[in-house]
Design a protein around this nucleic acid. Structure first.
Lengths: 185, 185
DNA sequence: CAAATATATATCGGTCCCGAGGTATGATCA
DNA sequence: TGATCATACCTCGGGACCGATATATATTTG
């Protein structure tokens, strides 16, 4: 599960600029450290695996720093992979919440506002499904299942979260789909 | 990581009433299925492990249903373990968000409102720390790190979530700590 | 009547992932 | 000058977890 988020983050950061592993580690920690910490024993094997898949190349740079660095460059294949993963997210559900946030963090790498809006619309469609969250089948999980104030609180918080995201999605999609008058700055 | 949430849920459900494994499975799925699905290969070993730890006992009931049931009963040791875990949550951070919600779902099992409020206060203290979420050390992660509208949206949603929880915590703590006039209802 | 589905419990192989440790150098500080 | 820390990369053992599978019966559906 972490692999999917981590690989997306690596592809996204390397599209911004070439980085060496240690630097990448810092950025990944800043992005998802509080949500899901990533260990060295996960990061470095991921880099190796992705290099073998041809999504990035490694160039040794001895003498640059304290220890020998291996700078990582995104290949055209890696760039294509990133864009594929942004365009065709295969899961948008709650159990993959972290993954959705990671995707959001790199959605700017799809150049077309129309494409960006299309991805947001998919998330919106998912959130608006009555089967999404706190539903069991088609029956909402309400009073009976959550009789005490603490479970009620859980529902309250979940509802507020979902409302916040929905309203953000609506305004952002509108903005993205409003055609920009050409010739302006 | 799932172990902690799952065991808490099992202890909590069994404090309500004895259940057999399949029933427990349904309830666990209803509670955390959308957040984090739990496989059979995780649930049944957990039951076994917890029985060996002395937190629950199993009683075979042949002929009750299609297949032979093994009804699960919480032992006094299991009950003590549950209350210990509710009273002394060792982690309340974001990476353990699911765990916090699971704890909330069973907090009613601490009988004293004062004790319930104490746990909420700890969560409140954590959320109000400036080092909590979207902070890197003591520097808030703001404009520079999240330059595009999508990362801004991430911040917006996270902020709304946190505000919703904070306001709920404040009112609930106040209610819990308001002494009930004796002799009513 | 046959097939499919739901009930019900459990094991096992294999993968994913983390924590700990290993290696090495430059910088900082007492 | 010696200790300690930050930089920098990587491996390995082991535990947690999932998916698949096995088994067996009652009920529903075609």
């Amino acid at each position: 599960m972490i692999t999917v988020m981590l690989e997306l983050a690596i592809l996204g950061f390397l599209r911004d600029q070439p980085l060496h592993g240690y630097d990448l580690r810092r950025r990944v920690a800043a992005l998802m450290g509080h949500v899901r910490p990533v260990a060295d024993g996960t990061l470095y094997p991921a880099i190796k695996r992705m290099a073998e898949a041809g999504w990035l190349t490694r160039k040794d740079e001895p003498g640059t720093a304290a220890a020998p660095r291996r700078t990582l460059y995104l290949t055209p294949e890696g760039r294509a992979e990133l864009e594929h993963r942004l365009r065709e997210p295969d899961e948008l559900d709650i159990s993959d919440e972290n993954r959705w946030f990671t995707l959001l963090a790199f959605l700017r790498h799809l150049d077309e506002p129309k494409e960006q809006a299309a991805v947001l619309r998919r998330r919106l469609a998912f959130l608006e499904e009555p089967t999404s969250f706190f539903y069991d089948g088609d029956r909402p999980m309400g009073a009976e299942e959550f009789p005490d104030p603490f479970r009620q609180g859980l529902l309250t918080i979940a509802h507020a979260t979902s409302q916040a995201e929905l309203s953000w999605l609506h305004t952002t999609i509108t903005t993205l789909e409003t055609p920009q008058p050409p010739g302006l700055a």
